[in-house]
Nucleic acid binder design. Structure first.
Lengths: 183, 183
DNA sequence: TCAGAACATATCTGCCAGATATCTACAACC
DNA sequence: GGTTGTAGATATCTGGCAGATATGTTCTGA
């Protein structure tokens, strides 16, 4: 996925499922891709305008509700396939939590332990969410996509379990730090 | 960590270790925080100018090489502590790999398996890097910071192991997908 | 002394999140 | 039958940030 508009990929992907308004695209992305992707309105509307100008998307015959409903064109579907096949450029790492823990001595071990415990709590919650999501996907009738969806759910599960295990190791490490260390 | 300039935190953090030029700050961040943080020059120089104007950083008595060497002021250290203590706002998820796998049916199972195998290879390499880093940190004399550094190394290790385990599960899931599925 | 490597600073483009400002449709409520 | 609230919908602006690029400087080794 080239650095160039990954938003376009997500929007085209959403419209490849069914025609939608910009508002609905955002809702679909939040709902369905929410555990590994996010988009803001500030991106979606310019993206739709761009894609429409390029003929990758067109406003569907207006059913005269409010809001324009867009559908993907054949060119758009071809472009989506191309973009999906581009090599992935992993984002540069930027983990605010680890940045703070690295300078943890300035914060003191107490605060650091709270930070880690907070991660632990959120990871537990994520696991529950993923368990529900997995049941949902496994019950879904669309067998052709099921394996792909499960792959993304599994990524979330493994990530959350890793956070749990890390949090426990981190708490052990921090337990050994003297609270009266000059920070 | 408020959304507002996390770059400032990283730069102040680097300068809290020792005075440095902008160029050296970038090098230090890449080298020392590289496995969980990154900065670009395009951020560092404006950040240094901002911080200097705010009195959080000052140009050290010039030893007359090229380049201005900055050191953190007392105000800067206080500000750093404050910023480190601010609540963490986790970045919105944006995982290009999972985005592609989610629409994997459009790509076909072969391409998807290649993507996953690639992750697996990189995760193996990461694990080796972290093992070396761990040995380095454990040998380091600075006992006061060692636990904090190890916490960040452990995060990388757990993350990489999770990727390995996920990749294996994903390959199993994708092995069951019929290659002749209409995509 | 000359070439090139490493050091150093600066700027510009484009992607993107988040906040905010409107506007419409519709239903519940009084 | 008007008011009010809520959800749907579109658009714009600010600021953080990565990556590329341009350019000058210092040092080292041939």
């Amino acid at each position: 996925m080239a650095r160039s508009s990954r938003t376009d990929v997500a929007v085209l992907g959403a419209l490849s499922v069914q025609p939608m308004s910009g508002y609905a695209v955002r809702a679909a992305i939040t709902e369905t891709l929410g555990h590994f992707w996010s988009e803001s309105f500030g991106q979606i509307y310019p993206a739709l305008a761009r894609l429409e100008a390029a003929g990758l998307v067109r406003a569907a015959a207006d059913g005269r509700t409010s809001g324009r409903v867009f559908e993907i064109t054949d060119d758009g579907l071809a472009r989506l396939r191309t973009m999906l096949a581009e090599p992935d450029e992993p984002a540069p790492p930027r983990n605010g939590l680890l940045l703070r823990l690295f300078f943890g001595r300035l914060l003191g071990p107490d605060v650091c332990r709270d930070l880690v415990r907070d991660v632990r709590v959120r990871a537990e919650a994520s696991l529950a969410t993923y368990a529900a999501l997995r049941r949902e996907v496994e019950a879904e009738p669309d067998a052709g996509n099921r394996a792909y969806f499960l792959v993304t759910v599994a990524a979330g599960e493994h990530g959350a379990r890793a956070q749990l295990a890390w949090a426990d190791e981190a708490l052990t490490l921090l337990a050994a730090v003297d609270d009266r260390d000059p920070h």
